[in-house]
């Protein structure tokens, strides 16, 4: 099968996974469980109450990096996008990060001799983790609710003054500037292990597993950040403009 070819709703869900096993965590994030027999993507999605168009674009954006469906994804509601992003945060915090933490712990248990270097690695990872978690937290507490408020205001055509003020400021633009730094830190962690960590026979197996998980996390986060940068931020901007226009139109009418 041509791996560059985008998936469609008519495909069998099983074939999607067979052609790219990296999609397993993404499918899980949507709350889809295995055992779907020969059902199509469309069937599985309707059964789980999932917007199939959105699901397809998300898996396609993972599947082929040169195909990032910026425009297509922007058509979906902010609510849907935010729901997915929040689920992804949960996946990192509840599964991925603890898994990596455990691998580092088992590395410490299995090291021959001095644990000093691995403790350094652990501290480095813990700091990274804290920064990542606080990044997620500020998105969930500030950015995501803001998108909700904008959508509500647009729908009800009722714009609170504080929201209008926020919409007119550059407030949202600064939100995703942590991405670069977080990416650099994760890259450093990988590179420190690959290039500068002396490993021994006993620890080498654990190191391999750790590295593979770090690469997977990196790939996943890259996609997550791309959805925020290329889809969510432009979405916020367009909602802001709509809300400002609505407000101006309302004013003109009342004059």
């Amino acid at each position: 099968m041509n791996t560059k070819f985008p998936f469609t709703p008519a495909m069998k869900m099983a074939d999607v996974i067979h052609s790219n096993y990296k999609l397993i965590p993404i499918i899980g994030r949507f709350g889809i469980h295995f055992g779907f027999g020969n059902s199509s993507v469309l069937d599985v999605c309707s059964k789980h109450n999932i917007n199939v168009g959105f699901f397809i674009e998300i898996i396609n954006s993972y599947h082929n990096k040169s195909y990032f469906p910026t425009e297509q994804l922007q058509h979906f509601s902010g609510e849907l996008i935010i729901d997915y992003l929040t689920k992804t945060h949960t996946f990192y915090i509840d599964s991925k990060i603890p898994e990596i933490g455990n691998l580092i712990d088992s590395l410490i248990e299995n090291v021959d001799g001095n644990t000093q270097n691995i403790v350094l690695l652990q501290e480095f990872f813990n700091n990274y983790k804290n920064e990542l978690v606080s990044h997620f937290k500020s998105e969930e507490e500030e950015v995501f609710p803001y998108v909700g408020s904008l959508e509500r205001a647009e729908k009800l055509k009722e714009i609170p003054g504080s929201l209008l003020e926020k919409a007119k400021s550059d407030w949202a633009k600064n939100f995703e500037r942590d991405h670069g730094y977080l990416e650099e830190t994760l890259f450093d962690l990988k590179n420190l292990i690959i290039k500068f960590f002396p490993t021994h026979q006993k620890s080498s197996r654990h190191c391999q597993r750790l590295l593979i998980e770090l690469f997977r996390l990196e790939e996943d986060l890259e996609n997550h950040a791309a959805i925020e940068d290329k889809v969510l931020l432009p979405k916020i901007e367009s909602l802001e403009n709509k809300v400002i226009q609505l407000n101006d139109a309302g004013k003109a009418k009342s004059k």
Partner: peptide, 17 residues
Amino acid sequence: KLEIKTIAGLTVYALIN
């Protein structure tokens, strides 16, 4: 040369070595 960008990363390198 080291391909390490962050200060935290450079510090770990310095400590390991």
